[in-house]
Design a binder for these strands. Structure first.
Lengths: 248, 248
DNA sequence: TGTACATCAGTGAACGCGCGTTCACTGATGTAC
DNA sequence: TGTACATCAGTGAACGCGCGTTCACTGATGTAC
């Protein structure tokens, strides 16, 4: 009834879908998004070209799926990194772990990271649920920055995110839920909590930007031959960020 | 004799080359690197397809030129931003100006920035002089971070860059030259100066990473609908960086 | 100033390629009575 | 348990397309004497 129980036909179908995606991912790894070609996928999976249309509506639909999966997977990795910590771990350590988890995932499969972060694909518009997945990645960071004491350097960002939270109740609700506040609390309406939400959101967005910078440079190979370790760079940025937010 | 004096034939040639590049750039803006098509360029510029081969050896050669130009142009913009400052401006202000200059250039022509920073193009290897251009972009930052006092958060990066400077005399020479030290000084060999070079280089690399993060997120449109201003984010990161390096 | 020659811009035809996608059709697998 | 029907996976042929690039060739523009 829940759909998890499925006949052999449906199972085989999922299996083939997965195989198609695997091959497509390998093509991404080898030549970027532009190198994904249904014709070659079909050949490799042992099907005729048109047969692929039983599994994906179009090439774009396939790409959308890959991006969706990558986001979801990254979110899982980051969440797992948070889960490995003792629940009383200090905020700074949480941020460290989250950042390291994110980088670890990206470095292990650069092509999938580029799928998320890379140049928008020509003529291709991201699937709408991407936003939701992006939020899933950010959510753990919100918790880590909840209750932080932002210093002067980052205060303008806090002001901006606070305004954002105030203006968009939907975002406010998301932040409130993600910072682990009980669902019952009216976190959305109380003025004090809006400010706290702004702080948490500012931290998360800044963390995301730091990650995008350090990991992006590393993954796109800009440090090759520079004798540079991307991890060191990211760590430095994360520590600076933690300092700027007065984390313990 | 210097080649700047040229006949009308050569001038017309340069003009056509420029026109071809303009159209190619517009194609990049509209659909990414993959959308650059010689056939369509030829049609638009009023030539037959094969005629383009009088101006560029191949499609890859054309793309290389675009990337080269973008790098050079960004370097010019950043250098100009540095030049607008009074020569006795404090280091923090220098970094601010440099970062703002870089972002300004990128935001004004996002597609060219993506050409530099974006996902590596499938099957395309960057032209060798890219490295030199990248250095030209970084050079002004070296000057700004020269003589900085790095705090604990960024010290691991400094250690790494110092080791790098020590190991690669060519890089050491570049840093020495770019920090405005007189060419006569043996900046490469003296131990004290190697440390200073490491500090400057660490600052520059970190600045680059911060820029890549904030500007990259903004340019690839990840803040759209977030009610977020990329400039605020970048400023916050730059101030944090300046703090971490103890800039005045 | 005029002529002979070299250089260069540009053409049109042709190459083969792989691409995404549609269509009408076949055979196997499930489902309902 | 057996039969009738619906669903689904997969095929092969065909579509038109735009692409990068090569080739042999023409005509205009410069250069040398």
């Amino acid at each position: 009834m829940a759909g998890s129980q499925q006949g052999p036909r449906a199972r085989y179908r999922e299996q083939t879908r997965a195989e198609i995606k695997d091959i497509a991912l390998r093509q991404v790894a080898e030549g970027g998004t532009a190198a994904v070609a249904l014709t070659r996928i079909a050949k490799e999976v042992g099907l005729s070209g048109p047969a692929l249309y039983r599994y994906f509506d179009s090439r774009d639909a396939l790409l959308s799926d890959l991006i969706r999966d990558a986001y979801a997977d990254l979110a899982t990795a980051v969440t797992a990194a948070a889960g490995d910590l003792p629940s009383d771990a200090p905020a700074r350590e949480r941020v460290r772990a989250l950042a390291a988890g994110c980088r670890g995932w990206a470095v292990a499969q650069p092509h999938r990271y580029l799928l998320i972060q890379g140049t928008p694909v020509p003529g291709y518009s991201a699937p709408p649920d991407t936003l939701e997945s992006a939020r899933a990645v950010l959510a753990p960071f919100l918790g880590a920055f909840h209750g932080a004491r932002p210093g002067p350097a980052v205060r303008p960002v806090v002001a901006q995110t606070t305004a954002w939270v105030r203006a968009d109740p939907e975002v406010a609700g998301w932040v409130a839920r993600s910072t682990g506040g009980a669902d019952g609390e009216p976190a959305t309406s109380a003025g004090m909590d809006e400010e706290a939400a702004g702080v948490a959101l500012a931290g998360a967005v800044l963390a995301w930007s730091h990650l995008h910078g350090a990991v992006g440079l590393e993954v796109s190979g800009q440090f090759d031959g520079m004798g540079h370790d991307g991890g060191t760079l990211l760590t430095a940025q994360v520590e600076s960020l933690a300092d700027a937010f007065g984390l313990d």
